[in-house]
């Protein structure tokens, strides 16, 4: 959708990034199965999908922010997810009846952080990466102030059974939740006024404003949604780990961007979608599992993650040449 402005600058499209990413995931699974038989077994795949879900849900917000354009990027998602999990675990403290208040409080705090990001970016014109990078420091400070360096509480049993337990067809409920969110987000991006406004703002802010779209409100909402989805993923991650630690979800920052890029969301804004991002999250998770199977150290995996993002960006994130 609304691609004509930029599509002429892109290389001829042989395969859509979504198909390419899905192919990559299957190729990685086959390599894994060859290297270590049993890698692509049913239980393993379900487990990988479940781990992908956390990344996939954080990456929902990242995708929305990147589509909103203006060099939009949210580097604070990992810290926000961690903070939401810390708040959630302290409030619910293993009690099912407190799950709803915990979820409400955690997501409200996350939304407030996203609102600060959005306001700083739109009204104070702080570049998104500077604003969200600065926000990492603030949220880390909030975490330290809130916990005094020691995380409390634990996940409510219902949350744990939703994430870890088998609900329907022998599959964890988390996967159904992810599917539901994916459908809802895709519907929002493709079929609602807000979705259309978001793509318009991302493609060309001036023409969007001249068309009467509330540009600032659209961008601010994108950052709020990003923080809220990050907070939700943090709460779900809490269900997976049951107890929380101070850097629970920090490492999701880079993969959330990588997942969106793999899925074909252009960093320039205005082009993209969630289906690709979800597959991107699966690709990255399978890659991680493969690297762990190959007994590559955490440091080595960090290096490889960075290189993978660079290679993927060079495949379809390239900028225009000066000489045309």
């Amino acid at each position: 959708m609304n691609t004509p402005v930029i599509s002429s600058l892109r290389p001829p499209k042989v395969l859509s990034p979504v198909v390419l990413a899905a192919g990559l995931a299957i190729a990685l699974l086959i390599v894994g199965e060859i290297v270590s038989p049993g890698f692509a077994g049913h239980g393993q795949i379900v487990n990988m999908l479940r781990v992908s879900a956390f990344l996939g849900i954080i990456a929902i917000g990242q995708t929305i922010v990147i589509i909103s354009g203006g060099e939009g990027i949210d580097l604070s998602v990992g810290k926000v997810a961690t903070f939401a999990a810390i708040i959630g675990s302290r409030v619910m403290d293993g009690d099912n009846t407190k799950l709803l208040p915990a979820l409400t409080l955690a997501l409200t705090v996350a939304a407030a952080i996203g609102l600060c990001n959005g306001l700083g970016i739109t009204y104070l014109r702080i570049p998104p990466f500077v604003m969200t990078l600065g926000m990492i420091g603030v949220v880390q400070g909030l975490i330290l102030a809130y916990t005094s360096g020691q995380a409390h509480g634990r996940a409510a049993p219902f949350l744990t059974s939703l994430v870890n337990g088998k609900v329907i067809f022998d599959l964890p409920g988390l996967l159904f939740l992810w599917l539901l969110l994916a459908v809802a987000v895709t519907w929002m991006l493709r079929r609602t006024t807000y979705g259309w406004q978001l793509f318009a703002v991302g493609a060309n802010r001036v023409s969007a404003r001249l068309s009467g779209i509330p540009v600032r409100r659209t961008v601010i909402l994108a950052y709020v949604l990003s923080s809220v989805f990050a907070g939700l993923a943090g709460i779900l991650l809490l269900g997976y780990t049951e107890s929380v630690f101070l850097d629970l979800a920090d490492q999701y920052m880079l993969p959330s961007i990588a997942a969106a890029v793999i899925g074909g969301t252009l960093l320039a804004g205005g082009i993209g979608g969630y289906a690709g991002t979800a597959i991107g999250a699966v690709v990255l998770t399978v890659l991680q599992s493969l690297l762990i199977t190959l007994e590559i150290s955490a440091a080595g995996r960090t290096v490889i993650n960075g290189l993978v993002l660079i290679v993927l960006l060079s495949l379809y994130g390239r900028q225009r040449r000066l000489r045309t």
Partner: peptide, 27 residues
């Protein structure tokens, strides 16, 4: 080289290389 030859946006490209460098530092 990553920014100029591969023509990637500096923000994301150097963000990605930062993980390469900090991973190497840990090695």
């Amino acid at each position: 080289l990553v920014v100029v030859v591969a023509r990637l946006q500096p923000i994301v490209a150097t963000f990605a290389t930062s993980f390469v460098f900090s991973g190497l530092a840990l090695v």
